[in-house]
Design a protein around this nucleic acid. Sequence first.
DNA 1: ACATTAAATCGTAATCATTCTTAATAAAAA
DNA 2: TTTTTATTAAGAATGATTACGATTTAATGT
Lengths: 136, 136
Amino acid sequence: MDVVSALKKLKDNGYKHTDKREDMLTLFSEEKRYLSAKEVLENLQDEYPGLSFDTIYRNLSLFEELEILEVTELNGEKRFRFSCETNHHHHHLICLQCGKTKHIDVCPMEDITLKASDFNVTGHKFEVYGYCSACQ
Amino acid sequence: MDVVSALKKLKDNGYKHTDKREDMLTLFSEEKRYLSAKEVLENLQDEYPGLSFDTIYRNLSLFEELEILEVTELNGEKRFRFSCETNHHHHHLICLQCGKTKHIDVCPMEDITLKASDFNVTGHKFEVYGYCSACQ
DNA sequence: ACATTAAATCGTAATCATTCTTAATAAAAA
DNA sequence: TTTTTATTAAGAATGATTACGATTTAATGT
Ligand SMILES: [Mn+2]
Ligand SMILES: [Mn+2]
Ligand SMILES: [Zn+2]
Ligand SMILES: [Zn+2]
């Protein structure tokens, strides 16, 4: 996922192109890590004084719906990152300090034969937490 | 973990025995599933009119500290369940509707050789979500 | 370029889970 | 039974997120 194809996806789905949306996408493409709504706001409000939290949240949700961003929840707050380029199903190593990530190619679900016959499995989450080299 | 040994753990660590604490523990021992703070409150406020949310949260945190309860976060709210009897490190299948759980004995971390040399790994989370037989 | 229309944004209030504060209460110890 | 200290109630405060009505702006057609 990159800014250009994200903007195209917006247009293809009937959403408008705005400077704020483009700047949000650019931010995510530059910072390859999980960002909170607050971090996104702070990064943009120099250029847009009076930028509303509502705008941030609305667009983050939209981007998530369009699979431009992926989301995780950490310490009671949502964090978003640019969807990975690869289509390969995978998981992440996440820095608890700065949100930086590394890929984990293995998916535990592949190995585990869930004989959970009476359980209708709809999803799973596998995340490994720690601190990146810069944050240790 | 059971009510008796949980109460003992409280006493051993210098905490007092109160009816509310005992009733909270009894609730968790009866309902073998993840409960939210709200659910705990609702279950006890028949017996204790005017029971405070603060009391619930304070005791939930205390129980978590003493490893009497284990916690997970789902849809932006914490959910607690009685710690599993087994000492064996394991994970859970969680019903998104009612919080019922099943054990998953396999831990993905055992298999994965994390060559994340520059990452200081401090923890991980592996949860499988779905709907239990009663909730489908 | 201009007008029209629907989407996007602002500003702010509301909501929801959780935490904090202070005074009153109850459990354990003396 | 008195004292000590932990626990609780009540409600205010917080922090993240969502909702709302009014205003602005992007896209579209003229
Ligand atoms: Mn997977
Ligand atoms: Mn594990
Ligand atoms: Zn880091
Ligand atoms: Zn269920």
